[in-house]
Write a protein that binds this DNA or RNA. Sequence first.
DNA 1: AGGGCAACCCGGACGC
DNA 2: TGCGTCCGGGTTGCCC
Length: 269
Amino acid sequence: MPELPEMEHYKLVLEKRVINKPISEVLINRPKSVNLDTSLFEKKLKGQEIEAIERRAKFLAFHLKNKEVLLLHLMLGGKLYYGTEETSPDHEKQVILDFGDNALFFIGLRLGYLHLLTQNELEKEWANLGPEPLSPNFTETDFLDRLKQKRGKLKAVLVDQSFVAGIGNRYSDEINFAAALSPKREVSGLASNEVSSLFSALRQVLTHAIEAGGYLDLPVFEGDVLTGGAERTMKVHRRAGHPCPRCGATIIEEKITSKKTSFCPNCQH
DNA sequence: AGGGCAACCCGGACGC
DNA sequence: TGCGTCCGGGTTGCCC
């Protein structure tokens, strides 16, 4: 569920808090969430420091001093919290990294995971990801070139991680709305001005969502008032039955290539 | 090659 | 404030 803006938000919050602090304890409550034998995982991590946090698509990579990497994917319903045991939310924590004064809690890792990898293994994991949509290197020309090679419906293409990385069900709805394009459109039939709208919508929606703190409902630390702000900026996603903020028609929800999709049937063409 | 679907998993929503 | 059932969601992989 967390998508690019939510993971970027976690990165921004956490890199102010966990960088260069030794990990004093590691607690694994759910062995399936990690990729090594729990005692080995704990042993390898204990005493290590996180040197940098990198986000790629919906992943966070915690780069360790010893050049190994903790790779996190939250999948469905995964969340993070940084603070003390007392202030932490009353949810099951599958993995806890303790930094002494505060700890990083990995919550709701059901399908999600935290894997300790080498740099090479990390590269393999990321080999099939498309470009980062907010990278300054990613231009409208790149976008157009990639789009030319794709077929299928706009909805399916936007959530395809090998096309552009980091967009999921929620933001694909918002991007299509911002571009005033129907999620059912075949991408091969898009006119060049429509591709332009789509490209700027993509950047604008994701950028604004990051600025608003993402949509996740759980504060990341005590006193956190920013997280979740993007929920209020949703124009169509999961708003079926409400009036379209652009034209006033009723927003609908339909399954498009097996994805629940919200859109305005009147002003998205 | 694109679309459909099952598997992974379990918190939360819903029905009673 | 109970108990069972079902669903959702990203990703992978397998089918047609």
